[in-house]
Simulated assay, not measured.
Amino acid sequence: MQLTRIANDQITVDIAALGAEMQSIQTRDGRHWLWHGDATYWTGRSPLLFPIVGKAPNDTVTVDGVPFQMSQHGFARRSNFSLMVEESDRCVYRLSASEASRAMYPFDFELDVEHRVEGRAVVVSAMVTNRDHKIMPFGIGFHPAFAWPLPGAAGAPHGVELDQGGAPALHRLSGGLVNPRTLPSPFEAGRLTLDHSLFADDAILFPEGAGAGLVYGPSEGPSVHFTWENLPNFALWTKPGAGFVCLEPWHGTAAEIGGSEELSERPYSELLGPGATARYSFRAELRG
C-alpha cells in the first residue's frame, strides 16, 4: 500500500493512495488516536464517501432516468488516487474521472483530498470540481473512526457533546435506507453518552441540527475537538463491540425509503454547476 506521511513536532499522520484514506494519527508520546482497521469488525479507518453517501435502492442510482450501478458510499474509497503534492506537513491526492468511473457516474469531475497537520490537529479537506458542461449532482462525506476508548481512557464512559448544545432529531436506517420518521433526540442539552446498544440497528443519523462541532471523549482525560465545514448532516456509527466510533459529517444521506432513485433528488444532494468547485472539510484537534 502506497503511504504518505506528514508530521510536525506534535503529531504524525499516514495517508494511503487507496481512497486517499487516512490510516493513522499518532501523537509524539506514541499514542494512536485512529481505529486500526481490524478486519474482524471493519477494515475502514477514515474513508471518503463520494459520489453518494450511504446506500441506494438495489445499489442503483439514476441520472436523468438512466440507471447506474453504485455501491454503498460510492467508489472513491476503493479508487487509487494520484499524489499531487507532498510536503512535510501537507499532502494532496487527486482522483479524476476515467472510463471506469463514467460507467458508474457519467460526469467529468476532479476530486482533490488534502491532509495537513496544524499543531495537535489534522485537517482534511475535499475539493470537488465539475469539469463537465452540465450540473453535477453528488453526495460527499467523511467517515473517520476514532479509537473508543481513546488512548489512556480505558474504562471511562465516553460521550459526544455538541458545541451548540442542541438536541437534534434522530433518524434511523432500515436496510441501509433512511426512514423519514423523526424520532426523539438521544442528546440532552447537547450531551450524549455513548453505548454500543445505540448502534444495534446501524448508524444513528441527524440530518439537521447537529451544528458544526463537538467534543468526543470522557468527561475528564483525552478528547477530540471535531469540527466541520459545509456538511449539514451528521451521523455516529460503530459495529457493536468494536473499539471505534465514527464521527461522520456529510453533504447528502442515503436514499429515503420509498424515495426517488434519481441522484439529484436524494436527500441533501449537492448540485454543482459547470466549472464550479466546492470545498468540504473537517478538523480533529487532539486534547489531553
Rank of each mutant, 00 (worst) to 15 (best):
V128L: 12
S96G: 03
G213W: 07
D195T: 15
E99Q: 12
V178F: 02
T193R: 11
M136E: 06
N230M: 00
S82C: 09
V61P: 02
V63S: 08
L18T: 10
I257D: 05
A169T: 10
G190Y: 04
F206T: 08
R287D: 08
V92Q: 08
Q164T: 09
G288T: 01
P67K: 11
G241E: 05
D108S: 04
P184N: 10
E188T: 14
A189F: 11
P222H: 00
G65R: 12
A97I: 06
P184G: 02
M136R: 01
L162I: 06
R94I: 10
E188D: 11
L150Q: 02
F187D: 05
A103S: 07
L271C: 10
L34R: 07
A189H: 05
R181V: 15
P47G: 12
G30T: 05
R77G: 13
P180V: 10
E248M: 10
S98P: 00
S260D: 09
L150G: 05
N179E: 07
V122M: 04
E265P: 05
A212W: 01
P184I: 06
S24E: 03
R116H: 05
L183N: 00
G176V: 03
F75L: 08
E262L: 12
D89S: 06
R77P: 15
V63M: 06
V124F: 03
D14P: 00
D163Q: 09
L192P: 07
M127I: 12
V61C: 12
E270T: 14
A200T: 15
V122N: 03
V113H: 00
T129R: 13
V124E: 01
P106I: 04
A210E: 04
A153T: 12
A17Y: 02
H251R: 15
V215L: 13
H196T: 14
K55G: 12
P47H: 08
R94M: 09
F234Y: 01
F234E: 01
M84L: 13
V117W: 01
V85S: 03
